[in-house]
Amino acid sequence: MCILALAWQVLEDIPLFLISNRDEFYHRAAQPLAHWPHSPIFAGQDLQQGGTWQGIAEQGRWAIVTNFREGGQTTQYPTSRGDLVKDFLCSDLPPIRFAKQLESRQQDYAGFNLIVGDRQQAVYMSNRGEAPQILPKGVYVLSNGLMSEHWQKTAHLRKRFTQELLPLMQLPQVTLAEQLDTAWDILQDQRKVTVSLLPHTGIGEEMELLLSSTFIQSEVYGTRCSNVLSIKDEQINWWEKTQQGQHAGEIRQIHIK
């Protein structure tokens, strides 16, 4: 998972509204969004390690993880970052307690940003410099650096999310189809950042530029799926759009009441 925008307790009657892109190597096998057998989890699944990048559970628990970009990092870690989402969704701990317990073993994982939540509380942490913190209501945008860092990539997504999509969500005459079309358009934005404004994460200018757009495309790596997730009243709705391969453009929906 590479980038997300979250409106937490901002929209009336929609405490959680989240859009995101998952970026990964095209050859890495994965299952699309589905209910996992014998599990409370609804998510896509990484078939290499068995975890996931974003998921929900019937009772309203949800979680999402992004990698923390560290160019030149060669350390092998014993556990997969995809287990973080899976472990939270299968837990019954409040989000802040889960995150604080994770702190004691956070160095067992490669660099990550993690947001975990339920219907009442959302918590962010990173094992590269951000202790667990309860998020007050607001809009949050996160990519592959710390949430407290300014990246032009996240600033661009924040602008489109807050100026185009969130106002649309509050207009009663706007249809769901129009809302989704706008969300997909934002998530498929291939605008790249001016070279002078790129972050410096140790991967070189050419790769920084390639990865600077909301939607990423290259020969071997890019945006694999886009997601729109909302909790409204007691209903959970999640749309996943496949963005790569022979099923590109296919949309799957999960509705939980």
Rank of each mutant, 00 (worst) to 15 (best):
P199M: 06
S91G: 06
T201A: 03
R119Y: 10
V116S: 00
I115F: 06
Q31S: 15
S39M: 11
Q76A: 14
L229R: 00
C225R: 11
H35V: 12
Q173Y: 15
K137T: 14
V139E: 05
I251M: 03
V141D: 00
K100D: 15
M1Y: 06
F98D: 01
K232I: 11
G44I: 09
A43D: 08
L16C: 11
G72R: 09
W151N: 01
L211I: 10
Q173M: 14
T75H: 15
I251E: 06
D108I: 03
Q73W: 07
T79C: 14
Y77L: 02
K241W: 08
I251D: 04
L135K: 09
E24V: 10
P132Q: 00
Y140S: 03
L157N: 01
E130Q: 13
Q9N: 14
L6I: 03
Q45W: 08
L4M: 14
Q45R: 14
R224T: 07
V10H: 01
T75D: 14
A5M: 03
T74P: 04
L157T: 00
T242E: 15
E12T: 13
A30Y: 12
I254E: 10
Q244I: 15
K159T: 01
G202C: 08
P167D: 07
D46H: 05
F112R: 05
E24L: 10
L198C: 05
Q243T: 09
F88P: 01
R81M: 04
V65Q: 00
S212L: 03
Y109G: 01
Q107W: 06
S91D: 10
W151C: 00
S226R: 05
L176G: 07
E70S: 11
L197W: 07
I19W: 07
Q152Y: 07
Q253L: 13
F25H: 15
E208R: 01
G117K: 02
H38A: 15
P78E: 11
T175I: 07
D181R: 09
P95Y: 05
P167S: 10
V220L: 13
S213R: 02
H27A: 14
E58M: 08
D46K: 02
I115P: 12
R252D: 09
L168R: 10
I134S: 10
A34N: 12
G204K: 06
V10K: 01
A29Q: 15
D23W: 04
E208N: 03
E58Y: 11
L6M: 07
L146I: 13
S230E: 11
I216F: 09
V174S: 05
Y109D: 00
R191D: 05
Q121K: 07
N144W: 01
I256R: 02
S218T: 11
T79N: 12
K241H: 11
L210F: 06
H150R: 14
E164Q: 12
Q243H: 10
L166W: 03
S39L: 09
Q188V: 05
L198N: 02
G129D: 05
I236Y: 03
K257R: 15
A183S: 07
I186P: 02
F112E: 03
H150N: 14
G138M: 07
I216H: 06
L171W: 08
Q54K: 03
H38M: 13
E240Y: 02
M169Q: 08
Q73M: 12
R160Q: 13
D13F: 07
Q188G: 11
W151M: 02
